[in-house]
Design a protein around this nucleic acid. Structure first.
Lengths: 118, 118
DNA sequence: GTTACTAGTAACCTTAAGGTAACTATCATG
DNA sequence: CATGATAGTTACCTTAAGGTTACTAGTAAC
């Protein structure tokens, strides 16, 4: 599946998957949050993703207009990432998502308690 | 990356990606919505996904407790899918996501209007 | 009595996604 | 004067994800 096909859909949920689909982008946006953060910090914050993939995803997020990349002309290199307006507007939604996950886990935990009680 | 690693994370956003990560699951949940829907209808509703992958994703969603599968013992076979409580609670969040996408597109459209005006 | 219909599944193959290791440049420290 | 630190990138390879085709079963319509 080419991602373009998702992006060109007339269904806005399908286009959403074209922008945010995959395993990493919401997590990266959430990890950046409201602060300015360096590449290395970000990589340390999300240890499950390799630096190569992180760099790729960041480039795509920049192209989608969700993050800004600020490179300083220093050696050793320094690059900061931060969310754009559009990226920031995603944060409360991501927060709701993560709370949803926790509440789902709570229902599962309750169910297993009941099971244990039998 | 094994999906289990995401699911076992201590970070709830990472676990969220373990549950909903990928390109299809939110779209499938959104397509089911509040109704009861047959496999074939669902496939027709999301033409970009193949039936094989759709079946796989539905199975995973069922295992995650987000959808229910009701098979009728008929020939030709009939199977209905519908959201569980946990699945239903996701709908408003997905709606917010899709509205977010539309509003992002609006800002891009505005920007190109400005550009055209120059 | 052939055909179509449905909801998958299995085998097989292709493509996308991800991982690893090596490399760059230059300044600061030991 | 060698070492380490940073933010990547490239080449190369592996793994995950997805697509295609063929197949099933029993009833209904033609």
């Amino acid at each position: 599946m080419k991602n373009d096909q998702l992006l060109n859909s007339t269904c806005s949920m399908t286009r959403t998957m074209g922008i945010l689909g995959g395993k990493w982008k919401p997590l990266i946006i959430w990890s950046i949050g409201k602060r300015r953060i360096r590449f290395g910090q970000l990589a340390a914050h999300i240890p499950l993703i390799s630096r190569k993939v992180l760099a790729e995803q960041l480039k795509e997020l920049e192209e989608s207009g969700l993050i800004l990349r600020e490179a300083f002309n220093e050696v050793p290199p320094r690059v900061d990432y931060l969310l754009t307006e559009n990226g920031l507007r995603l944060l409360p939604i991501l927060k709701a998502l993560s709370e949803w996950t926790c509440s789902c886990e709570a229902t599962v935990a309750d169910a297993s308690l009941v099971k244990t009680a039998n």
